[in-house]
């Protein structure tokens, strides 16, 4: 699931009224149950405000959950029906640009899908009732970082969530990132996925890599051809290029990355000034040598002619 424009809409008031019937129960914060088979908690609660503000906020509940849910109590058979994002996101032409089929392929190749199989779905990370498109539209990289990292930390900073999913304890994030200089600064300015995914052509790579394949080579990001330009700054770079036609402005105004943050004009100016200084010294040294040699030969001549 990635950000999307809502499907064809019913009028907002009609949506609110239709959803109100569902939210009479589902707005309760504690509504949910623990699945007897896998022990995972199934959260049935929807925050109405978050839902309305989300990218799906203008859809009626039954757009995704089928009209059979309009009866109460809901038929027990419905519980088995697993929703899939691509049911809508594959068919709608307006949503093609979000490349959902590509995202699905990436997800299937990700460590999550490979190791956890059916236990891990789009909804493990993306709550369709609060999801908001971020990386594509945000002008503030820091907010995108915060939003996206929160998705990972829902499980990766929650020991019981990890135990339920993988039956392995979560290693301390501090310890496994101890090698990373200024790790808090990295965490505040780059997303987990910027190092932990394989670069792909979709908007946001969903191919989460096993931890041993995560980026550890500093210059992958800290260089003029920074990996971040293909990931975190991908959309920023496009926007800024269109608006300013100047790549450096993006990087300079948004963040600071050693080795990648270079101001083009300062760079050129520094080469020119340095070159002129070296040239100035070379000319001065050359003149000193020339006149020195001339003086020496005149002295020699004078000595030969008997003058002191």
């Amino acid at each position: 699931m990635i950000g999307m424009k809502p499907l064809p809409q019913e009028p907002a008031t009609a949506v609110t009224a239709a959803n109100q019937k569902c939210l009479r129960c589902h707005a309760q914060a504690t509504l949910g149950y623990r699945n007897a088979t896998d022990g995972l908690y199934v959260n049935l609660s929807v925050n109405p405000d978050e839902y309305r503000a989300s990218n799906h906020g203008k859809l009626t509940c039954v757009k995704c959950h089928t009209k059979a849910f309009q009866t109460f109590p809901h038929p027990a058979t419905l519980r088995r029906k697993q929703l899939v994002c691509l049911d809508c996101h594959k068919k709608d032409r307006k949503l093609l640009k979000f490349q959902f089929p590509g995202i699905l392929r990436e997800f299937q190749a990700s460590v999550h899908a490979r190791k956890l199989g059916n236990k891990f779905t789009c909804f493990s990370c993306h709550d369709p009732h609060s999801f908001k498109i971020h990386a594509r539209v945000s002008r503030r990289v820091a907010q995108t970082v915060l939003y996206d990292n929160h998705i990972c930390l829902q499980c990766h900073s929650n020991e019981s969530a990890i135990l339920l999913l993988s039956a392995k304890p979560q290693p301390s994030l501090d310890l496994i990132h101890a090698w990373l200089p200024h790790k808090e600064l990295h965490w505040a300015n780059a997303r987990c996925i910027d190092c932990h995914t394989a670069p792909t052509n979709t908007g946001v790579s969903h191919q989460i890599l096993p931890k041993e394949r995560a980026v550890r080579d500093c210059v992958r990001c800290h260089s003029s051809n920074s990996l971040l330009l293909q990931s975190l700054y991908k959309f920023q770079v496009r926007q800024e290029r269109t608006r300013d036609g100047f790549l450096n402005a993006t990087i300079l105004n948004q963040s600071y990355v050693i080795g990648a943050t270079r101001n083009y004009y300062l760079n050129v100016l520094s080469f020119v000034v340095f070159g002129l200084t070296v040239a100035g010294i070379a000319v001065h040294a050359g003149l000193r040598r020339h006149f020195g040699a001339k003086r020496a030969s005149e002295d020699e001549k004078r000595r030969r002619h008997g003058h002191p």
Binding site: D217, C218, V219, S223, I258, G259, R262
Partner: peptide
């Protein structure tokens, strides 16, 4: 400042 993966550069 001019970090790159090139062999001419010292490890970052």
């Amino acid at each position: 400042q001019y970090a790159s993966a090139s062999a001419a550069n010292l490890d970052f």
